[in-house]
Amino acid sequence: MKMQNSSTISEKCAFLADYASWLWGCGATCARITKNTARIARALGIDCELTVMPSHVELSLAGADGADAAVYTRRTGHSGISFDINARLSRLSWEIADGLVDFPEAVRRFDEIKRTRPTGQWEVLLLVGPANAAFCRLFGGDWAAMLTVLVATLAGYPLKQTMIADGRDLRLTFLCAAFFSAAISAGAWIFGWGDTPDIALATSVLYLIPGVPYINAVSDLMAKHYLCAFSRFMDACVLTACLSAGLCAGMFILGLEKF
C-alpha cells in the first residue's frame, strides 16, 4: 500500500515537472510557471517547491518523514513560443484546481496539448507580411514604403522559416533574414520608390525583433527571478545584435551611406 501511494506521488511530481518545463518552453513567464504549478500541486495534495532556472526546472518534494523526499529535474524548451499551448496549459491548471478533471484525465489532456500542431507556416507568413507593413505605416511610411516592407517581409520570413526548419543556427538565421529583408527594402532608396524609403528600410526587419523574450525578461525581473530575466534578456539581445548586423551588412553592401 505504501509502495502504491509512493508511486502515485512520484507520477504526480513527474507530471508537475513536465508541466512546468512545457510552460517554460512555450514562452510563459516565471510567475505564471510557479503559480500554475503551485495551483495544480495544491489540487493534487502535493507539498513541493519549484525552482525555475534558465535551462531546466526542478521540483523538490519534501515528504513528512523524509521517506518520499525527491527532486525531479526537467530540461526546458520543447515547443518554441506558442500562445496556444500556453493558454491551454493554463486552462488545464484551472480545470484541475476546480476539480473538473481528475489526475488520469489531466495526464491525458496534457499529452494531447503536447501534440498541438504549430500554426501553419503559410498562414503565419500571410499574417506577418501585412502586420509588418502596418508597422511601417505606424511609423509614418507611405503606401510605397508599406508595399516595399510587405515584399521584404514576404522574402525574408520564408528564409527564416526554412533555415529554422533545417535546424540552422538561430543567430545565423536572424542575420541572413535581416540582411535580405534590409537589402530588398533598400530598393525603395535606390530606385526612388515613395517619399519615405528610410522608414521602409528601418521597419523591414521589425518582424525579427524577439519581443516575447524581452517582455518576459521584464516580467521575470519584476517577479525577482533575476537569473531567468537575465538569461532571456541576453538571448534577446544576441538575436537583436544579429539582426542589426544583417541590417548594417545590407546597408553597407548597397552603399547606403546616408543612414
Binding site: A183, I184, A186, G187, I190, F191, G250, I253, L254, G255
Partner: peptide, 11 residues
C-alpha cells in the same frame, strides 16, 4: 548604378 546592380544580384 553599382547599387542597382548589387540590389539585383542580392534579389
Amino acid at each position: 548604378v553599382q547599387a542597382e546592380i548589387t540590389w539585383w544580384a542580392i534579389v
